[in-house]
């Protein structure tokens, strides 16, 4: 089933100026897909993301989430229930001073009974591996932990799509890994549709599909492998290859029969194989 369909959407923060943050994007995301959206700062990634759960309504074109048009205000609540969103700054998303109260916020908003909220908190914290922190204070947690709480807060509403808007940008490597692991698990085990916005190239490798945005438009769309094999284009859009891919490319240019590795492990295998063949 089609989870998200964007039909030639445009968005301008100041109307009538003719400068569009998103300028005519057409994109379809299937249920269960894990899509990474890449692009430089200011390429329109976040604007695009906010159009998927009706935080922004397209100036032109249509955004459709599970068959519901975001432009119709009657749909807003349903759309937000099915498309949850995690933001960039881990400090700016929690509303309560205690973890479980924060996770409860979404379920409270959709009017669930008390007992069900309790169950949802248990489920959501378990899914992000934060059960032990149920009564903790968010401000004392690490960045990665805070983001996992934010994910739990979204999960507790049981959405079908999870949009992560540069949610790893402000984290240290450990925090990034924690968030990535949780998101991958949700996608693999629960079939959660994931739209993952990032400018860390190595994170895009975990996705089924990568979309590159540049100046408000989608300029590349394919599997991460396909995208990374077009390194000259990537560079044109201000992105860089993951370091392992860069090394692999340079080795190939130096005459070694390698190419196609994106991770350190694959790179080592490649080198090993070609050295042994030599």
């Amino acid at each position: 089933m089609e989870a998200v369909r964007l039909e030639n959407v445009k968005f301008a923060y100041r109307e009538g100026e003719g400068s569009y943050a998103v300028n005519g994007v057409t994109l379809s995301v299937e249920e269960g897909e894990f899509v990474a959206v890449l692009g430089r700062n200011g390429s329109g990634k976040s604007t695009l993301a906010k159009m998927i759960n009706a935080l922004l309504i397209p100036t032109e074109g249509r955004a459709i989430v599970f068959g519901l048009d975001t432009a119709d205000e009657k749909n807003t609540f349903e759309i937000r229930k099915s498309a949850g969103m995690v933001f960039q700054n881990p400090d700016n998303q929690t509303v309560a001073s205690i973890v479980e109260d924060d996770v409860a916020f979404g379920p409270e908003n959709i009017g669930l009974p008390r007992e069900e909220i309790g169950r949802r908190i248990g489920f959501a914290l378990d899914a992000v591996g934060m059960s032990a922190f149920r009564s903790a204070t968010p401000s004392r947690l690490s960045g990665g932990q805070k983001q996992r709480i934010a994910i739990a807060g979204v999960l507790a509403v049981l959405p079908k799509i999870m949009i992560l808007d540069e949610s790893t940008a402000m984290l240290d490597p450990k925090g990034r890994r924690e968030v990535m692991d949780v998101v991958k698990k949700l996608n693999k085990e629960r079939g959660m549709t994931v739209i993952f916005i990032t400018h860390f190239m190595d994170e895009a490798l975990e996705a089924d599909r990568a979309v590159v945005m540049h100046r408000g438009e989608t300029v590349m769309d394919g599997t991460p492998r396909e995208i990374f094999s077009r390194s000259d284009e990537l560079e044109m859009y201000g992105l860089a290859l993951p370091r392992a891919a860069y090394i692999s490319k340079k080795l190939a240019e130096g005459g070694m029969p390698v190419g196609g590795a994106f991770r350190a492990e694959d790179l080592a295998e490649e080198i090993c194989a070609s050295l042994q063949k030599a």
């Binding site: 998303q93 109260d101 009974p113």
Partner: peptide
């Protein structure tokens, strides 16, 4: 940011809201 995060988590005022 917080306003966006609250909206995204289906906040729409006291109406229809329960308390945990």
């Amino acid at each position: 940011d917080l306003g966006d995060a609250m909206d995204a988590r289906c906040y729409s005022g006291a109406k229809g809201r329960t308390k945990y």
